[in-house]
Design a protein around this nucleic acid. Sequence first.
RNA 1: GGCGACGUAGCCAAGUGGUAAGGCACGGGUCUGCAAAACCCUGAUCGUGGGUUCGAUUCCCACCGUCGCCUCCA
Length: 489
Amino acid sequence: MGMRLHDTLSRRLQPVAPLEPGHVRLYTCGPTVWNRAHIGNFRTFLFEDVLRRWLERRFDRVTHVMNITDVDDRLIRNAGEHGHGLADETRPWIEGFFADVDTLGIRRAHHYPRATRYIEEMVALVERLEAAGVTYRGDGGIYFRIASFPRYGALSGIRAEGLVAGASGRVDADDYSKEDARDFALWKVVGPGEIGWDTRLGRGRPGWHIECSAMSMALLGESFDIHCGGVDNIFPHHENEIAQSEAATGRAFVRTWCHGEHLSVGGEKMAKRFGNFRTVPQLVEAGYRPSAIRFFLIAGAHYRRRLDWDEEPLQAASEAVQRLRDFRDRVRRERAGGGAAASGPGSSGGAGAEEGPPSRDALVARVAEATAAFEAAMDDDLNVPAAVGQVFAAIRDLNRLLDAEPPAAAVAQRLEDWVAAVDDVLGVLPLADRESEAGLGPEEQELLDRRAAARARRDFEESDRLRAELAARGVVVEDTPGGQRWRRA
RNA sequence: GGCGACGUAGCCAAGUGGUAAGGCACGGGUCUGCAAAACCCUGAUCGUGGGUUCGAUUCCCACCGUCGCCUCCA
């Protein structure tokens, strides 16, 4: 059974079958760099990251393109106010974006095309559309005539009758002088003093939608496999992309459209204009762990369900990551300390993976079961919450089996590989490790040493006092048969 | 006004026409010098009212509630 994804256009699950067998071409709408991206934006980018990771597991090759919109009305306005050029305006936001991408452990796309570097491609595309006779020139620029594209509205389900100009309150309808309210600008005319490009179309700058069509087709071809974004991109952005792309090429633009739901706060969409947004650096500064933020955003709910940003679930996410990490660490110790298992019945016959005691077979069988369940959940429209549920159910069973009997080294290795495979998709463990990477300071090390000495002479009063002192410094100490073990709280 | 989505234990959440995964929190217990970790035990009949069905949380209808999109917002 292969992987399936929900396609917004057909509103059904569709098998992922790349146009070029084994090679998936993926385009995800990236940020407009006029401001710091917030975690609502990152919920979408994280869903796309998990999608990309799973595609890489399932197919030989994935080519991932994410655009960076570095020209739009707000950017031009801000650049003007700040008295510098577009590049100076966008640079800090682009840098901030990539800093956050790294903080959250998002795999870098293979290409990050910027709109300002694809002006020629956009001009060429507009020319193709003009040649196809689906455009007209108005006061403000060149527009796409929706009436010339019968399939318009198929993606969003929005028809002309339902449109109420300015209903969203976000755009001043008077700004547009068009034949039809649905028509959209391909190219906007700008005056001599304004930011713009001198092109065959005249001096101007591109409309928003044209960049994604031009850049995706330039890097992935006129037809490609998967195009993602947030649900708010369905209309008008993606609807318009389909119209202009297919009107130009006469070919199907995208096989599968995937859209991630919003992150909300107190039930309302997180958005810049509501002022209810948080950014990654803000959260990190406030003490939130990137591993917990990542886990919450990818596993807090299925990507097509709304997710509400809230304290309690976030704390739960943090604890869940810790549980996964504790299990990973336990398995590592079991594997590394394989000698400890030498007295167990499992290793009396030497190495080899053929025969083993019941518990060992049970461990192997349970891991195989968990692997299959995890894969099935991921294949089923990227059901991360279900997949994660399978992982934790398995961890409980595996812990019980491990409690009963130490595993043979080969089995421990298998468990470790399993955790690694799971986290290759979830991507939270490297973040958690990074968070606690800060080693012990000299003072902390001394406290730990003194505690070990106190324990050696069974001075538990002193031992407990030192444990509390370390805890106050954010170092959690646990006692095990093998001695103390510490980790960052 | 148009289109659409959601409502599952204290919180988050998966899910199926045949009586509901998982995480967190809470309580009890085993282990531990005490803890921690781990394990065990304890909790929901799935917004409300109808309907279809042998049987619905899962299908249909209505209602209540919450929310999203309706031209440059992920």
